[in-house]
Structures are given as structure tokens and as C-alpha cells.
Design a protein around this nucleic acid. Structure first.
Length: 504
RNA sequence: GGAGCGUUGGUCAAGGGGUUAAGACACCUCCCUUUCACGGAGGAAUCACGGGUUCGAUUCCCGUACGCUCUACCA
């Protein structure tokens, strides 16, 4: 019988959630939902020195924006609560002690200074089978000496004791069988001097306690996997261990290496999912959301960075991703992040979504940009004819604001060089014509326009750009006559008059 | 230094013993559009290198190179 699928995303609340983190959540979520399982969020806050105010809340806000709702978490509750490791502190110690009792771990009294000195003295120093006998721990101390130190509340940590020349192997769902020789693995700290577990102990204990069936994490964890396997073996039995999958890394676009927030700042694109303000430095970092990304596009783009369905389809809804996702099709190698492609996904999604789905976001955007919309039916039409030319939600400001207010600046330079008296006369006449007879039909307006051009013996083509600039303010936007219809007679006429005045 | 992992066009990538080595992004050319986009057509790779195995290797095996990750009482 196979276990019920239960996966977990286990972030540390230390700052904004970056691309790689969100993708890890996504793959967890997709896998869980594909298999009808549960998606758990566990907060790994065992390092009190790195705790950052607001970071946990930020994580949940990000998940909500992305539409990746946990089944269990400190926020959503669940039968395995608490879901914050700091609140589970008491549960870890006994396992560490159990290992000590079995001779598989030991107390170490070395101070930070002593360890530093050791590292300086010997290059590539590792606390391991090769060196532990020269250190200050319960392996070299007499039993009563150890007891004395313990009784005197001497600070200590508990370290795993790995015997050399043992092979540890496991099957990674993405990479296949992975082997390690314990000779190369160091005696990792399991329990810190403050009584908190390190990641190594905490993942194992909590994954067991929370009945996690599959554990996915970034590739950077692969080298410490043998410690986790060892712990599982000795504490809970390999048969209960979750299946592992180590995800490929997301790399910086230029050069090599893991993508970092710094790269985004340097290259001009977001790395965090949403805006993040570091409470310690007050440094503000822009996120994909605020940059104008749709969550659908963000998720879609992330899913394709390291995975593909095997077909030519690239645009997927969350439901489609859930249906198609499989670990077998996740790449082994890291992927360089390409912001151009990310933009393409967003553009595709804006085109794909109907007006109703876009409207709320556009309204919010307009509100913050002081664009007043009186007529929501008009807004619908405006969104419909402009959305194809918006890559970001924020582009609607530039692409659509002139429908609701007179352009503040007009690109006079675009028409001035070829401007002459004849054109001036034409537009003056046009104003007169439209003032008396302005149709709500773009075709009709165009016909009037062309007829007038003909009687004045000017090529209509030479007049199109000036008209556009008069109405729009610049050289962009949908068909001019469609625009004229939407802004209406009064605005159309006034804008022409205004620019005419500017030109003379 | 050590260990682990990885390597198909600039980027994401399909494919996987015999193929004209898909597709997308970006880029360039052209068409459409009297704006800007959308859309359409076209353009680039002998699959890191060297050895095997094989009638045949980009695909399998072994090396090498290169890259990345880890090597904290951080995760």
C-alpha cells in the first residue's frame, strides 16, 4: 500500500520569497494536487538570529497571490500543528538524546572560538571521524567528566557520529540513484547550544511527525542528504522515509551561478514574487506582482523553468499544470532565468484573459494613477481594444489612460515637421463637420474624414498620424476612429482644437 | 582542496542508436497595418571534448574539460 501523498514547503522566514522558492512551492503543490494529496507549509524558524519580522506573513501573502493555498500551515491550521519549528522545540531534543544513547551521536563542548582556531590552523578542517578525537567532546572525555560538564550547564551541541567507509545511497526521483561515502561526510550539529535543532535534525523529525511522503527541495541540499538518510535509518526506519527529489537551480541570466536578488537589481528585473521591504534596512525590493505580472503568468512561467509537458504547449492554467505535471519531466540541469521570456508569458496571459478577468486589476491600477472611470461599460471596451498591446498590467496606464482624460503631453514634434496651412484648414473644417454630425460608428467617421480630405485634395494618409497624435498624444494605440468613437464627440473635437491652437 | 550534481542553437527546451535534430523567447528579413502592437512567412545547432561498444552514436559506457552546489551551532 502506498502512503497518502503529503508534501511540504519549508521556508525560513528571513526575507522576500524569490523565484526559486516559489518554484519549489509550485512543484510541491502541483505534485500534491496531481496525486490528490496534501500540501503543507512548515515554517523553519530555528535560527533565531535570522528571524525577520513580517517575513512569514509575506510568504503567505505570496502563496495567496499565486493561488497556491496550503492545506495545512501555521496560518491554516491542521492536525499536525504546530507548524512552526520554534514552537516544536521540545520535540527534537529527545531524538538527539536517543542517538547519543545509541552511540550514534555525541556531546561536543568546543566553543565557537576553538572551532574557528581549528579551521584557521588546518585547511579544509572538518569535524568528522578524522578529527573528532582531537576535539573536546563526550567521545574523548571520561563519562564522569562529561556528566560534570553537563551538570555544570556547560554549553554544548549534539553532533551525529558517522563511521567512515560506509556507503549511503538513495533514489532521487529526478536524478536516480545517488551514492555517498560517509568518509567524506562531517559530523553535523544536530542540536544547537540554545536547544534548537539544526535543519538536519528538524527536517527529519518533522517530516516523520507530519507524515510527509515526498520531500522536494533545491539541489543545494544534495550534499547533506546522506546525513538525513542516516538519521531516517536510525530514528524512524528507511521504509518510512519520504521519497526525495532535488530540484535544479534557477541560474542568473548572464554568467553562471544561482540567481540572487542582486542579479535582479543589477539587470533590472524582479527576483522576489512581491514587493518586499526589509524592516532592518528599510530597503525596498520590487516584486513580479507590482511590476505588473499576472499570477497566472508568473506561475506558468515558473512551471516551465525546469519542466515541460513534452508537448508544444507552453501556456497552461493552474488546473492544466496540475493535470500534466510529473517529476519525470523535471530537468536535472539548472536553468538560466530569462526575463524576456517571462515578459512573453505575461503578454500571452493578458491577451488570453477576457475583459472581466482583467478589469479588477485595471481598475486598481487606474485608481492609484488618478484615472477616473465614470463609465464601466466604456472601460470594458477600452480594455478589449488595448489589451493586446500590454505586456504588463501597468502598461494599461500608458495604453488606455487617454480614453479617460485628455493627454497631458502631446507629441507635437511628430507632426510639426510636415505640418502646413492646408492641414490646418483641413482639421478646422473637420471640427466643424464633426461638431454638427458625429457618428458613434468608426466606419462612418472614417468616411467623413476621407471625404473631406478628398474635397480638400490632401492624401488621407498624411492626416492619419496628426489625428492620432491629437487624440492620443503619441504614436500608439488602436485604430484612430475607434478611439474617437470611444472618447466621444466633445472630447474628440476639443482635443483637435487644443492641438490646433498649439500648432499655430 | 574534497564530495555530489550537471553539460542539445544567445536563452528555455523536444528528441534519444539510423531524424531534413521539434517548438518557444530574443535577434534579423519580409508581408499585413497610412501609428504602436497582434498576426503571418522566412533565417541559425553536426547535440562540450577524447576514447570505446556498434554496421551505425547527439543518443549507451569510460575518461577529460568546463560549470554549479555544498563543505557554519544558516537554511
Amino acid at each position: 500500500m502506498t502512503k497518502k501523498v503529503r508534501v511540504r514547503f519549508a521556508p525560513s522566514p528571513t526575507g522576500g520569497l524569490h523565484l526559486g522558492g516559489v518554484r519549489t512551492v509550485l512543484y510541491n503543490y502541483l505534485f500534491a494536487k496531481h496525486h490528490g494529496g496534501e500540501f503543507i507549509v512548515r515554517i523553519e524558524d530555528t535560527d533565531q538570529t535570522r528571524f525577520v519580522e513580517g517575513a512569514e506573513e509575506y510568504i503567505f501573502n505570496t502563496l495567496e497571490w499565486c493561488g497556491l493555498v496550503p492545506d495545512e500551515s501555521p496560518k491554516h491550521g491542521g492536525q499536525f500543528a504546530p507548524y512552526r519549528q520554534s514552537e516544536r522545540k521540545e520535540s527534537y531534543r529527545k531524538y538527539a538524546e536517543e542517538l547519543v544513547a545509541k552511540g550514534l551521536a555525541y556531546y561536543a563542548f568546543d566553543t565557537a572560538e576553538e572551532l574557528d582556531a581549528k579551521r584557521k590552523e588546518t585547511a579544509n578542517f572538518q569535524y568528522s571521524h578524522a578529527t573528532r578525537n582531537a576535539m573536546n567532546n563526550s567521545l574523548v572525555l571520561e563519562a564522569d567528566e562529561t556528566k560534570k560538564l553537563l551538570d555544570a550547564n556547560t554549553p554544548y551541541v549534539i553532533r551525529v557520529k558517522l563511521e567512515p567507509h560506509q556507503e549511503i545511497k538513495f533514489t532521487d526521483l529526478i536524478r536516480g540513484e545517488v551514492h555517498f561515502d560517509t568518509t567524506q561526510v562531517d559530523d553535523k550539529v544536530l542540536l544547537k547550544a540554545d536547544g534548537m535543532p539544526t535543519y538536519h535534525l528538524a527536517v527529519v523529525v518533522d517530516d516523520y511527525a507530519m507524515q510527509i511522503s515526498h520531500a522536494f527541495r533545491g539541489e543545494e541540499w544534495l550534499p547533506s542528504a546522506p546525513v538525513h538518510i542516516f538519521l531516517w535509518d536510525k530514528l524512524f526506519g528507511l521504509e518510512n522515509m519520504p521519497q526525495w527529489a532535488h530540484l535544479p537551480l534557477i541560474l542568473k541570466p548572464d554568467g553562471n551561478g544561482k540567481l540572487s536578488k542582486r542579479d535582479g537589481d543589477r539587470l533590472g528585473f524582479p527576483v522576489f514574487a512581491m514587493d518586499w521591504k526589509d524592516p532592518r534596512t528599510n530597503e525596498q525590493t520590487t516584486g513580479f506582482k507590482e511590476r505588473g505580472f499576472l499570477p497566472e503568468a508568473f506561475i506558468n512561467m515558473l512551471a516551465m523553468l525546469g519542466w515541460n509537458s513534452g508537448s508544444e504547449q507552453e501556456i497552461f492554467t493552474l488546473d492544466e499544470l496540475i493535470e500534466k505535471f510529473s517529476l519525470e519531466r523535471v530537468h536535472k540541469g539548472g536553468a538560466k532565468f530569462d526575463f524576456e521570456k517571462a515578459k512573453w508569458f505575461n503578454h500571452e496571459w493578458i491577451k488570453k484573459l477576457d475583459v472581466g478577468s482583467l478589469k479588477f486589476e485595471v481598475e486598481k491600477l487606474f485608481a492609484t494613477n488618478n484615472i477616473i472611470v465614470h463609465n464601466t461599460e466604456k472601460l470594458d471596451k477600452v480594455i478589449a481594444i488595448t489589451k493586446d498591446r500590454c505586456t504588463f498590467i501597468n502598461d494599461f496606464v500608458q495604453q488606455a489612460s487617454y480614453f479617460f482624460k485628455t493627454p497631458e503631453t502631446v507629441d507635437i514634434a511628430a507632426i510639426q515637421p510636415k505640418w502646413d496651412e492646408k492641414k490646418h484648414t483641413f482639421f478646422s473644417e473637420l471640427v466643424t463637420v464633426w461638431e454638427s454630425d458625429f457618428s458613434a460608428d468608426a466606419m462612418a467617421l472614417e468616411q467623413q474624414f476621407k471625404a473631406l480630405a478628398e474635397t480638400q485634395q490632401i492624401k488621407a494618409g498624411e492626416l492619419m498620424l496628426p489625428l492620432r497624435v491629437m487624440l492620443v498624444g503619441g504614436k500608439f494605440g488602436p485604430g484612430v476612429f475607434d478611439i474617437a468613437v470611444l472618447i466621444g464627440k466633445e472630447e474628440t473635437v476639443n482635443r483637435i482644437k487644443n492641438v490646433l491652437a498649439l500648432l499655430s
